[in-house]
C-alpha cells in the first residue's frame, strides 16, 4: 500500500513537472513582440519612470526568456519549488499574494455549491432509480441531460437577465454591494449571500446532472444485487431497504466522485466567476491570462495540475479505505 502510494506520488510529481514544461513551452511560443507589448504597457503604467527597453530586457532576464526553453524552464522550476512564482504583471504584486487573497472566495462558493448539489442530485438520483422506467425516471433523466447540455455562460446570462434585469431582485454582478462597508457583520454576510445566489445556482445546475446520473446508475446496481433481494425477502420495510442497505452502498463510488471534485474546489469556476465577476481565483486568472500575464498563467496552470494529481491520489486512497477489495493492489 505505502509502496503504491509512494510510486503514485512520484508519478504525480513527474506529471506536474512535465505538464508545466508543456505549458511553459506554449507560453514561450509567444512571439517576442508580445513580450515587447507587455513591456511597453508595463512601462506606460509606470508613468515614465521605467523605459520600456529596460523593462523588456529585465523581463527577458526575469523570466528566463533570454535563454532557450529548457534553461528558462529550469530557472522557473527552481524558483517555483522554493515557492517563488514571481510577480504578476497585471496585479503588480507577488502571484502567491494575489492567490491567497482570492482563493477563499472560490472555495466558499464551491463549498456552498457542493452542498446544494448533493442535496438536490442524490435524492433525485435515488428517486429515479427506485421508480425505474416510470415517468419520474424519464423526467429526472431528461432534466439531468439538459443540465449537462447547458452552456454555463448561457444559463448564467439568462439568470442575470431574469433575476437582475427583469425582476430586479438580485444584484447583477460582483461579490459585495455598494453599501457593503457600512453594513453590520450580519448584513455583510447577507450581502455576500445575496450576491452568491446566482453564481451558486449556475454552478449547481451545471454539476447536478452528472451526479444525479451517477447516483441513479449506482443505486440501480445496488438495488439489483442479491443482498437487497435478501433484505426484501426477509420482510424488511422498503424504507429501511433503500435508506439503510442500499444507499450506504451507493456511497462507495460516490466517494471517488467527491475526491475528483478537488480541482474544481480550489481551481475556481472560471466561466461562472467571470460572468458574475466574482473575485475568485478563476476570474482573476482569466483576466491575467487574457492580458498575457505569464507568471500568473504559469502559476495557475501548475496549480491546477497539482490539484488534479492530488485528487487522483486521494481518490485512490479513498477507494482503498471504503472498499477493502481494492486494497490488495
Amino acid at each position: 500500500m505505502w509502496k503504491f502510494l509512494l510510486r503514485r506520488i512520484l508519478l504525480g510529481i513527474l506529471i506536474v513537472i512535465l505538464g508545466a514544461f508543456v505549458t511553459y513551452t506554449v507560453i514561450r511560443l509567444l512571439p517576442t513582440d508580445y513580450l515587447k507589448k507587455m513591456a511597453r504597457q508595463f512601462a506606460a503604467s509606470s508613468n515614465g519612470r521605467i523605459k520600456w527597453e529596460d523593462m523588456y530586457e529585465s523581463l527577458k532576464i526575469q523570466y528566463g526568456m533570454n535563454t532557450n526553453v529548457v534553461f528558462g524552464y529550469v530557472k522557473w522550476l527552481g524558483d517555483a519549488i522554493t515557492g517563488n512564482f514571481g510577480d504578476s504583471w497585471m496585479y503588480m504584486k507577488p502571484v502567491t499574494a494575489v492567490f491567497s487573497e482570492v482563493i477563499w472566495w472560490s472555495v466558499l462558493m464551491n463549498v456552498i455549491t457542493l452542498i446544494v448539489e448533493v442535496l438536490i442530485s442524490i435524492p433525485l438520483g435515488i428517486l429515479a432509480a427506485r421508480k425505474q422506467y416510470h415517468f419520474t425516471d424519464y423526467a429526472v433523466t431528461v432534466f439531468a441531460l439538459a443540465c449537462i447540455s447547458l452552456p454555463s455562460f448561457y444559463i448564467g446570462t439568462v439568470f442575470k437577465y431574469v433575476f437582475a434585469v427583469k425582476l430586479n431582485i438580485l444584484p447583477l454582478y460582483g461579490l459585495t454591494g455598494r453599501m457593503y462597508e457600512q453594513l453590520s457583520t450580519l448584513g455583510k454576510i447577507g450581502d455576500i449571500a445575496q450576491h452568491l445566489i446566482m453564481p451558486v445556482a449556475t454552478l449547481a445546475i451545471l454539476s447536478i446532472g452528472s451526479l444525479m446520473r451517477f447516483t441513479r446508475t449506482n443505486m440501480l446496481e445496488v438495488l439489483n444485487s442479491d443482498y437487497i433481494r435478501t433484505a426484501r425477502a426477509k420482510g424488511l420495510n422498503e424504507k429501511v431497504v433503500v435508506n439503510k442497505h442500499a444507499f450506504r452502498n451507493t456511497l462507495i463510488p460516490l466517494v471517488t466522485v467527491f475526491s475528483g471534485l478537488l480541482p474544481s474546489f480550489f481551481g475556481g469556476a472560471m466561466i461562472t466567476e467571470t460572468i458574475f465577476q466574482i473575485p475568485g481565483i478563476g476570474y482573476k486568472s482569466f483576466q491575467a491570462m487574457l492580458q498575457g500575464d505569464i507568471p500568473f498563467a504559469m502559476f495557475y496552470t501548475t496549480f491546477l495540475m497539482v490539484l488534479t494529481q492530488v485528487s487522483l491520489i486521494l481518490s485512490d486512497i479513498m477507494y482503498g479505505l471504503v472498499d477493502p477489495r481494492v486494497r490488495v493492489n
Binding site: 505538464g19 513582440d33 481551481g267
Partner: peptide, 20 residues
C-alpha cells in the same frame, strides 16, 4: 500528462496569443 494539462487555461492563453 495530456490529461493533466488544464483545457480552458490553455485555450485562453493560446487565444490571447492569437489575438496578439
Amino acid at each position: 500528462l495530456f490529461n493533466a494539462i488544464p483545457t480552458y487555461p490553455m485555450l485562453i492563453i493560446i487565444g490571447s496569443v492569437m489575438d496578439g
